[in-house]
Amino acid sequence: MEQAFFLLIATVAVGAGIMVVAARNPTHSAMALMVCFVQVAAVFLLLRSPILAVIQMFVYVGAVIILFLFVIMMLDVQAEARTRFLKKGVTVTIVGICLLGGEMFALLLGSDLLFAQSLNLLPDQMSSVRGLGEVLFTEYLFPFEVASVILLAALVGAIILTRQTEEGG
């Protein structure tokens, strides 16, 4: 049952991912990416981490995609991007991508360790938000603070970059 759900979710996610890359209109790309992010949130639910699924929905679907849609709306991209793909060096790039993909799949499928390992998981403990919070706010407190400073710096940077100066800069 769970495997059937996983296969459904994975199919939709990969299809939406291909739509992101192949769509002509950037708005369609953004919407396809939104579908893909919802599927990834469902994958997080299958992995028994509900808090990450919620964060995924809030941050990616709620904030990042909407930000992209605002920028697409602001910039009037319809006139741009007449040709979808780069002109120069496409064959070399495709060969490189195929090599990378082949290498990744060879490594994944060739590792006996990955398939043989009988992993003992603790479902009750692992799915609790409380346990996650305890580790996050004790062992990883300093990186958490650093992340908040980085977010503040990004906020200030984005405002300064997009600000229109009076001398028309």
Binding site: G17, I18, V21, R84, F85, L86, G96, I97, G101, M104
Partner: peptide
Amino acid sequence: VVGIAGVLLRRNVLI
């Protein structure tokens, strides 16, 4: 792999 194809092949910065 799909994402890296998009980064390397598309012309539009948004994509």
